[in-house]
Design a protein around this nucleic acid. Structure first.
Lengths: 234, 234
DNA sequence: CGCTATTTTGACCACGTTCAACCGCTGTGG
DNA sequence: CCACAGCGGTTGAACGTGGTCAAAATAGCG
């Protein structure tokens, strides 16, 4: 489904790589950009497909995951408003490296490859912003690798919850509500564990009064205890 | 130790991000660049230290690793001639994200942060080359994460040997020699396993006639069998 | 030749996976 | 209206990979 979004008034513009750009350039962007509307479970692009361009989330949430030959999935990132998708594949000249699936109804703007690259050439400030994003992504990925190598599932889960708290947390009378609904499967794919272990760990956390759940959303009751779990084994 | 390397005749120039640059620009680079000589075990920079600039390997080999709070290390990458170090930290504005340690006597050129960034602004073709490198790095890191999550240590070792074969392999009468000497510890840190498992797996590979060793260097005798091991469990 | 660092082997243990059964809910069709 | 299939979630039991700990063997080096 189509619909035209104006970059200048896009809710994402303040959070996106385009935030620093002068209004004039944003208007140029609007010309080459198309906005699509996605429902939950829709796929924005598939791993292995040619990289057609880049995507910017104007509204909604998207999970990015890779799939093994055996069909197992690892969620690399859960992206919200302002996130840019598909740029690494584009710059490396490879096919899409992961699948992007909508997990909360979304408006996503698409910039065709050549148009975007041309625009990038004329905007060194944008190029630097993209470099910065990509660098942060690399660094985070290396940290995830370290976590996966050395930290227990319990600790990875604690850290994931804290990370989601940072991205999607909303203060609440009781605690901090994670404003996205993930299935156990998704959560386990995000921490690199099986669903069973994730379930067990979550119920441990509940029994310890660290978290609770309300209509499919996790509520963090004791952030400090979570933070303690995410710290070396005292 | 200091010594001035000329970029235009640098053995790395063909393999580096600077390869596409016109000779004139290379001469400009020479002006702002300093070359240092390193011996094995010397540290180029430490994780956590401020990012001072970028480094380009003109000769030798360097391992890049991150360290956990408990002191365990994970090797992210082993870089040879032409590799660029320290750019992700620089672009993200963060401190160095890993430690770079020389594992084979090296000549490494240093470009100071502001000088490099200024140069980058004037060279959009270089900026694109850097974007491309960084993208490949991100993609590889994500693949490593997938491997660490789902693949057995045996398989990760097989893949690592094949990867090293690609980067440092030299054809030999008997097979392909990996032209770098890694300790068992380093190899295990590179695949995210303990030294003991790595030792056991290596001796398995030897007994199966897949590899052998000559003066601290691994010789791959049966690349095809290694490739088979690196493939889903048939 | 003795001392240290690296490698190898063995025994044991634990985390987390696998497999299987089961629960609770929702939607669908007889 | 109930039966039942289907799905997400939960729990239990058994197993296995790989980590830990300890000790021996080997290699490197002053």
């Amino acid at each position: 489904m189509k619909c035209k979004m104006e970059c200048t008034i896009c809710p994402a513009s303040s959070a996106s790589v385009f935030s620093g750009l002068p209004e004039e350039k944003l208007r140029q962007l609007e010309q080459v950009q198309t906005t699509n509307v996605y429902k939950k479970h829709q796929i924005v692009f598939y791993e292995g497909n040619p990289a057609l361009g880049i995507y910017c989330i104007s509204e909604g949430k998207v999970k990015l995951y890779k799939t093994t030959e055996e069909g197992k999935q690892r969620i690399l990132k859960i992206s919200g408003v302002g996130a840019l998708l598909g740029y690494a594949s584009l710059f490396s000249g490879q096919n899409e490296q992961y699948t992007a699936e909508v997990i909360e109804d979304a408006h996503i703007c698409f910039l065709e490859k050549n148009g975007f690259l041309a625009f990038l050439k004329k905007s060194p400030e944008l190029a630097m912003a993209v470099l910065s994003r990509l660098s942060v992504e690399t660094i985070k990925s290396h940290e995830q690798l370290l976590d996966q190598t050395f930290k227990s599932a319990r600790r990875r889960l604690a850290e994931m919850l804290l990370s989601l708290r940072g991205s999607f947390g909303q203060k609440d009378k009781k605690g901090v509500r994670l404003n996205l609904s993930l299935t156990r499967d998704e959560l386990s794919q995000a921490i690199g564990a099986t669903m069973e272990t994730t379930v067990r760990l979550l119920s441990e956390f509940k029994q310890e009064g660290i978290i609770t759940e309300e209509d499919h959303k996790i509520l963090i009751l004791k952030s400090d205890e979570l933070a303690a779990l995410a710290t070396p084994a005292f």
